[in-house]
Amino acid sequence: MTTTADLPATTTTSSRPRRAPLTRLLRSELRMVLRRPRTLIGLGLLGLVPVVIGIGIAIATSSSDGQPIGEGIAALVAGNGLLLPIFALVVALNMLLPLTGAMLAADALAGEASHGTLRGLLMAPVGRARLLAVKAFGVATVSLIAVTLMAVTGIITGTALLGGDGMLTSSGTSLSFVDGLGRVGLTVLLVTIQIWALAAIALAVSAYTEHPLIVVVVALGLVIVSGVLSVIPALDWLQPALITTSWESVADVIQDPLSWDPLVNGVLRAACYLVIGYSIALARTLTRDG
């Protein structure tokens, strides 16, 4: 082996796996996801949602002669700007945010597999479990960014366009501006966790296919089927297990005092879906042919 001794450090055959630093991988992943045009367009559109809703409510309020402009939260948003981000997030949680989460998960594994870039990472090598962790981190972080972005544009639009002093809760009490911000933060947290749960399922699907569209279709199919099942009275027993059940309870954050039970339940439910999604995704990633 005289010849190989001339080579640089590469020849030292250590029996310990050598790995690229994890933070470097995470940063590189994030940089890539945030450079993807689809991600940027998605984030931009999501950021616009609260602005559009805010403008709509401002127009509706000025022409409604004091009549409520909608039901539930919508009725409370007029002149209650700090509620706009929460309202926008609750609205977006029905379809737009799950779509975003599914899209991110679809691009993370299926999309990279179709571009052949997953192979490059596997050969680097990034260990398979690590690869999934990096991907999960990317999806989770960008989901959080999307939700936070909506909250921020919502807060700005709300206070600028709808005004209001602090936050009026659905229970009829008024919260200070800081407490109101706390509620917005709580909403961001709860919504993000729900998106993480859906994205985990989507990531499991993503590990099985090379077609990102299939992932999005399956994930949204899950959302729609859950929605349908939840309104069938004969399947009441199933309701607490459905992923969409928690989504409805997110709106409870505007109650005062907060009732934590449904919120905590929602988080636990999401955690169950997270565990299921990621374990299936991990199993598939470990055995998948690259």
């Binding site: 339940n265 169950c272 374990s279």
Partner: peptide, 26 residues
């Protein structure tokens, strides 16, 4: 061996999640 590990991971994770959902539901 890897296949068996993967299967165990999937089974254990799914079981944990489902049991959790059942606990929440009951």
């Amino acid at each position: 061996n890897r296949k068996r590990t993967a299967l165990a991971v999937a089974a254990a994770g799914t079981a944990t999640g489902v049991v959790g959902l059942v606990l929440i539901a009951s």
